[in-house]
Design a protein around this nucleic acid. Structure first.
Length: 430
RNA sequence: GGAGAGAUGGCAGAGUCCGGUUGAAUGCACCUGACUUGAAAUCAGGCGUGGGUUUGCGCCCACCGGGGGUUCGAAUCCCUCUCUCUCCGCCA
């Protein structure tokens, strides 16, 4: 959420900025009229309340002195209805304003390149050389199925439907090894606190990180056993539960920065991506991810974004997977982000770099929604800045390892860094 | 699943029975000042959050787990939801 003060002081330039960077159309006239009504109604409501409070106090006093309070009661009679009506109207206007404001995306940082879509993203660097194959490389589906049916999409479809998979044997173990490797790297080398968090969260939590109210259709929602039970949703990323650890909390300034990592499954409905990446593991309803989250003081956040992205890169480098780092343009960034780097890993079968990590600085956007704050000793509470990044998406890393490390006979060499996690195994299949 | 207890400011903890100058005693923590060479201790004062309005001083409103109700007036009474704790049962 953006600072409400922006809407009062600088509405037209805010609207221009949102249009230019996000292509987001702000209804200035509507906001202005709502804000005008809000102001009038709030002043009216509060003055009626003040009036009521003082009269009620007088009644209390009179009663304490044994005076006759009947005339005082009569005088306050008509206030109730007026107040009730004013409150009601105010509530409606505020609800409407809140709905609009909580659906406005974050403002990109100044250095983020202007652009419409991924075409306008800016490549920052390439690491590693895509391997030259002296045979036709298979894609991960063929490779996975070839490894003793270690990647079984038919079973996934039978059990749950399209975009689900069953992993078995060496492929399942490789998947686990990747997860372990990433967690160990981040907790032992990069200073993150490992966390285990709920995979189902409530709506306040989803509002905090920006998934609600706007992106509810991207999520899987879970109905409780009874009507009254509060509705929960499956997390689309560990960013949601981990960042919300600090919702409605005030940290001491010395506690910051906070670094968390978490391995969780992620659940996405993929509504609106019909027909995209239908083959293979690239786009599933359920996938595992190791997520990195930072909570920091505002002036640190841009430096920390570089650090955080570096930690995700370290995984790719350790696995010796060629990748590139891309600075997303304004139009390609997520709703809550101020600045985002994507890491894209080389996939030989597609002869393309594909997203495997996304690292973002959200600024105070999520913190304002969550009321996640910190306090310098003796000072006022201030909003934190929040950051998160994948370190990495496990399923896509599995794809990258299989494809980049494949041999002509369909076997797959195990990256050296992973061998300790596979009991020293050097090769899958073959 | 059954029975009971509870949720109050950064923390601890009164107030809830009997509704009224209670945004809330007290303690801790924190800030300022005095004392001290400095520190500790002691003393005096200050010290919640969000919002509205104002050039400013200030004034006003809301908030005692969430929502709703009763009332001129609710931390206090009623309903409801959530969470926590204790005991029993069950279970990974």
């Amino acid at each position: 959420m953006l600072d409400a003060k922006l809407f009062r002081t600088d509405l037209s330039s805010l609207a221009a900025q949102l249009m230019q960077t996000r292509g987001f159309e702000l209804d200035v006239a509507l906001l202005e009229s709502l804000e005008e009504r809000r102001k009038a109604l709030q002043v009216k409501t509060e003055s009626l309340q003040a009036e009521r409070n003082s009269r009620s106090k007088n009644i209390g006093k009179a009663k304490a002195q044994g005076e006759d309070i009947a005339p005082l009661l009569a005088a306050v009679n008509d206030l109730g209805d007026q107040l009730e009506q004013a409150k009601q109207e105010l509530k409606e206007v505020q609800t409407e304003l809140h709905a609009i404001i909580s659906s406005i995306p974050n403002l990109p940082a100044a250095e983020v390149p202007l652009g419409k879509d991924e075409e306008d993203n800016q490549e920052i660097l390439r690491w590693g050389e895509p391997r030259q194959f002296d045979f036709e490389p298979r894609d991960h589906v063929d490779l996975g199925e070839g490894l003793a049916k270690g990647m079984d999409f038919d079973s996934g479809a039978k059990l749950a439907g399209a975009r689900f998979v069953v992993l078995k044997g060496q492929v399942a173990k490789l998947h686990r090894a990747l997860t372990q490797f990433m967690l160990d790297l981040h907790t032992e080398q990069h200073g993150y606190l490992e966390t285990y968090v709920p995979y189902l969260v409530n709506h306040e939590t989803l509002f905090g990180t920006g998934q609600l109210p706007k992106f509810g259709e991207d999520l899987f929602h879970v109905q409780g056993a009874t009507e009254q039970q509060i509705p929960l949703s499956l997390i689309p990323t560990a960013e949601v539960p981990v960042t919300n650890l600090w919702r409605d909390e005030i940290a001491d300034a010395e506690q910051l920065p906070l670094q968390y990592c978490a391995h969780t499954p992620c659940f996405r409905s993929e509504a609106g991506s019909h027909g995209r990446d239908t083959r293979g593991l690239i786009r599933q309803h359920q996938f595992d991810k190791v997520e990195l989250v930072w909570l920091v003081q505002p002036e640190q956040s841009m430096d920390v974004l570089e650090t955080l992205t570096g930690h995700a890169e370290a995984v790719l480098q350790a696995l010796e997977l060629p990748y590139r780092k891309v600075l997303l343009c304004t139009g390609d960034m997520g709703f809550s982000a101020q600045k985002t780097y994507d890491l894209e890993v080389w996939l030989p079968s597609q002869e393309k770099y594909r997203e495997i990590s996304s690292c973002s600085n959200m600024g105070d956007f999520q913190a304002r929604r969550m009321q996640a704050r910190f306090r310098v000793k003796g000072g006022k509470p201030e909003l934190m800045h929040t950051l998160n990044g994948s370190g990495l998406a496990v399923g896509r890393t599995l794809v990258a390892v299989l494809e980049n490390y494949q041999n002509e006979d369909g076997s797959v060499t195990v990256p050296v860094a992973l061998r300790p996690y596979l009991g020293g195994l050097e090769k899958l299949g073959g």
